[in-house]
Design a protein around this nucleic acid. Sequence first.
DNA 1: AAGTGGTCTAGACCACTCT
DNA 2: GAGTGGTCTAGACCACTTG
Lengths: 247, 247
Amino acid sequence: MTSVVPLHPGSDVPGLSRYAALASALRARIVAGEWPPGSALPAESLLATQHQVALGTMRRALEQLVNMGLVERIHGKGTFVRQGIAGASMLRLFRFDSGGGEVPQSRILSRQRVHASAAVARQLGVAPGEPVLQLQRLRLLAQRPCLLEDIWLPLDLFAALENSDTQAWGDLLYPQFANQCGVHVHRAVDHIGFALLTGTQAHHLQLPPGHPCVAVERNAHDLTGRCVEWRTTRADAHAFHYTVTIT
Amino acid sequence: MTSVVPLHPGSDVPGLSRYAALASALRARIVAGEWPPGSALPAESLLATQHQVALGTMRRALEQLVNMGLVERIHGKGTFVRQGIAGASMLRLFRFDSGGGEVPQSRILSRQRVHASAAVARQLGVAPGEPVLQLQRLRLLAQRPCLLEDIWLPLDLFAALENSDTQAWGDLLYPQFANQCGVHVHRAVDHIGFALLTGTQAHHLQLPPGHPCVAVERNAHDLTGRCVEWRTTRADAHAFHYTVTIT
DNA sequence: AAGTGGTCTAGACCACTCT
DNA sequence: GAGTGGTCTAGACCACTTG
């Protein structure tokens, strides 16, 4: 009988290579907030000596963090925890007539504090009945409505938004989240489907009721993986276009 | 004045790192057919000594080929040129009632040799008027039509398909391309959009004329980058669903 | 000039696959 | 056992950024 032997010599995490274990450990420290978004990690050489591994091994771990989208490395400057995603990401799904890469204007139609329905609670990962902030938002290109959004935000994170002046919010929401609430959207999952517009939805988009639309349901997450936003975006189905490459 | 100096010592390709140059050279040999799809490259140690670089440098080059999707490496076995993509890739865009990961049945509705229209010629990258094979194909799940496809193939590659028995083709087209014509589809670009069904399209799909549909235009390419197929697939828009993760 | 990440080396040893 | 790819090391040197 032999005792259990690690996968690799010196590895203290059975079943994981050394660089993978290092990446996991660094990830935990990033998620815990030891290095906040935008800040720099220690130099790779320092991290290597601190963890008593060769430089190449530490580089490999950092490379894995890059692939996870957690950090980005800049030659000559350092290794930085990635900021939240910018926004305007919804427009990549559509081609509007005068949408030459410009950020659409944002108009908040309504904002109210509500109790989370079962569906909203499930999407946000909070208890049903918890207070959430509900927004309805219209986005316009060249003064023409193009996107209609219903947004739910957990109030414990976004209390600062409840009474601030929506006129001053600017056209992108995620920078707003970061500046006013310290919430960085790090990852978003979009479920794209097809539907027909209700009367009120159609009215906001200046389209006929029953008009075909694309409905994008988005769950946005922060670094820790917590869902910080649930959103449904609707737009004219004829404006939809998306390109995927298979390999 | 100093003369132009390579980016890295020993690099014979200015502006490219050594491993990138190696990857490029290997890529050229793969595309040229020196190692056909499915075959193994020489061992990394052999390649390294042949090219007079350190093992780590050659590994880096091979890693880049993996990221390009050109080869796959199997621990203990070797490095293999990737086979063409399998097929059934269209179903990832839809959720049909009884579509539990099964391959839909394929029914060729028509096959004819035609002269490439301007549009078809442009998509396939051939001269207008060149002979092409046009297929119309219906795909069914649990005996119910779900996808209608119009397919154009350049005849110089696919002459073998012109007279073979379509009943014997099987439910996936790409394996057929590989087996009968030696054409390996290595990469496909799908443009997803929205449309309304014409009367005849609707009839094939057993839907009402004017019914909303998703139209997927696909350009499929082989290893050399040549477009070997142009296809438009149509299906009930209500069955469409797609998930994208942004990071 | 000092500090950062990027490239490359030469070699040891481990893990997986097939015979 | 022989051959393959995967991990790790210790070090040299290059390229980029900033002061």
